[in-house]
Amino acid sequence: MTDIHRDIKPLGERPRILQMQEVDKTFNGNVAALRRMSLTVNEGDLISLLGPSGCGKSTALRLIAGLMRPTRGRIVWDGGQSADDLGVVFQEPTLMPWATVIQNVYLPFRLRGQSLASVRDRIGEVLHLVGLDKFVESYPRELSGGMKMRVSIARALVTNPRLILMDEPFAALDEITRQKLNNDLLSLKAATGCTVIFVTHSVFESVFLSDRILVMAPRPGRVISEITVDQPYPRDSAFRTSPEYAAIARRTSDTLMAAMGNTEMEAET
């Protein structure tokens, strides 16, 4: 349906996009936010970084985004990195309040020096994908929390980036809206074949969305387990009540609890 669609290959056959190699991140010389974090992102992946607050999930994302540099280790993009490799969705919608929806989504193109006329169709297409056709000329304040987040997602998608980073994008939304947006995110992924790293502290969200879950533990932040969710897409609301879903959610939850338990015991000894 769109000229930007990429076909998603099965898990083992996807070309690699990016590798985080044994990355350490230390703040102020001694606070270890991240230790020996390794991560491989392949085209079409939807990877969740799951863990409690303070486990370095957001730090990992900021490192990949190039907003900070690793203290040790490397982040390598296959084929080098360029300005339009990334799309980002933050926890807040992060829209410019003085600009209309279309102007907000136009921003990445505008910064590249492309005229609005030349990308108007593309923006319309993405706004249609996120269901905001009728709100093109609206200001952010006129939209609900969920709709603002859709604009934010549209902005991240619009340049068709190699990788989209999402930092707990739905954490501030109510449960009903959040489930709806989770469903919609999977539809978007099916429609565009985008690659996503999704930070969350919700076990259920991570199981529902991802094909791989990296469970992280705090102090120092590190990956303690990788869980593959080998359930086929498309997944719909029925998946949320399936026994497979429950089993994986249980396993993920146990892993997370074990990680936290270990950390607490480590802290006591």
């Binding site: 994908l129 056709d133 609900s144 969920g146 009903i176 809206t177 709806k180 539809s187 429609a191």
Partner: peptide, 10 residues
């Protein structure tokens, strides 16, 4: 594919 409404509309 189009996503119609949030659960939030009155």
């Amino acid at each position: 594919m189009s996503i119609a409404e949030d659960g939030t509309s009155g």
